[in-house]
Computed example of a mutant assay.
Amino acid sequence: KTGQIAQYMENEGCIIANDPNRDRANVLIANLNRMGVLIARVTTRDGAKFARFENAFDRVLLDAPCSSVGMIRKSWRFLREWREKAVIKYMNIQKRLILAGYKALKPGGTLVYSTCTIDPLENEEVVDYLLRKTDARLEPIKLPVKTSELVLEWEGKEYSPELKKALRIHPNDNDTEAFFIAKIVKPGDGNG
C-alpha cells in the first residue's frame, strides 16, 4: 500500500509508514527500496502516539490490526482461532488508533479506515465511535466492486446512518477476501 501511495504521489512529498512489528517494518523497507520509493520513512511506533502530531497530516491510511476473519479463504486458521475476547481487544486498539489518526489529520484532510474482517465490532462500531466522539463525517466511496449491506444495528446498539457511505465487502461479493473501508473527512479547509 505504501508503494502504491508513493506511485500516486509520483515519488514527491513525504510518507510516514508505521508498523509496530519490526519484522514487517523491515520487509516494508526492503520492498520500498526494491520499488525505488524515495519519499517514505518507516517507523515502528504504537500508532496511537501519532495523536501528538495534531493537525499535521494531509491524509491518513489506518489499515487497522484486526481479527482477520475476512481472510479465511487464505487460511482456515483465522476462523479456527477466532475468539470474541480477541475481537474486543482489537476493537479497543482500533478505537485508540482511529482517534489518534483523526487527531493527527489536518482540517480538510482525509482518513481512510480499513480492515480485513467482517466483524461489526471492528468495523461499524469503531467508525461510529469516531463519529460520536468528534466532528468527523463520512464521504461515499465509489469503487467498481460488489458490496454487502452495512450493519447499522448490532446486539441492540444502533449505529449512525452515516455509515451507509462506507463499504463492506464480503468474500463472496467479488471472489476476494473481506474488506471494510470508510472514508472519513475532518471538516475545515486546511488553511489554518
Rank of each mutant, 00 (worst) to 15 (best):
I5K: 08
Y8C: 07
Y8E: 13
N21T: 09
N21G: 01
A25E: 12
V27A: 12
I29D: 08
I29K: 14
A30V: 04
N31P: 03
R34I: 01
G36D: 11
I39P: 11
R45T: 06
R45S: 08
D46G: 00
F50G: 05
A51D: 06
R52N: 02
R59K: 15
R59W: 07
L61R: 03
A64K: 11
C66L: 03
S68C: 14
M71I: 03
I72K: 13
R77Y: 12
R77H: 09
R83W: 01
E84T: 07
K85L: 06
V87R: 12
Y90P: 00
K95P: 09
R96M: 06
L97K: 01
I98Y: 10
I98D: 08
I98C: 07
L99W: 01
L99N: 00
A100N: 02
A100G: 04
G101E: 04
L105R: 11
P107R: 04
G108W: 01
G109V: 10
Y113W: 11
T115Y: 09
T115V: 11
D119F: 06
L121Y: 10
E122A: 06
E125L: 11
V126H: 01
V127A: 09
D128W: 04
R132N: 14
K133Y: 06
R137I: 14
R137L: 13
R137S: 10
L138K: 02
L138C: 04
E139R: 12
P140Y: 01
I141A: 01
P144E: 14
P144G: 10
T147N: 02
E149M: 13
L150H: 07
L150V: 15
K157W: 02
P161T: 14
L163I: 10
L163T: 11
L163V: 09
D173C: 15
F180H: 03
I181T: 00
A182F: 08
K183A: 12
K186R: 13
G192F: 03
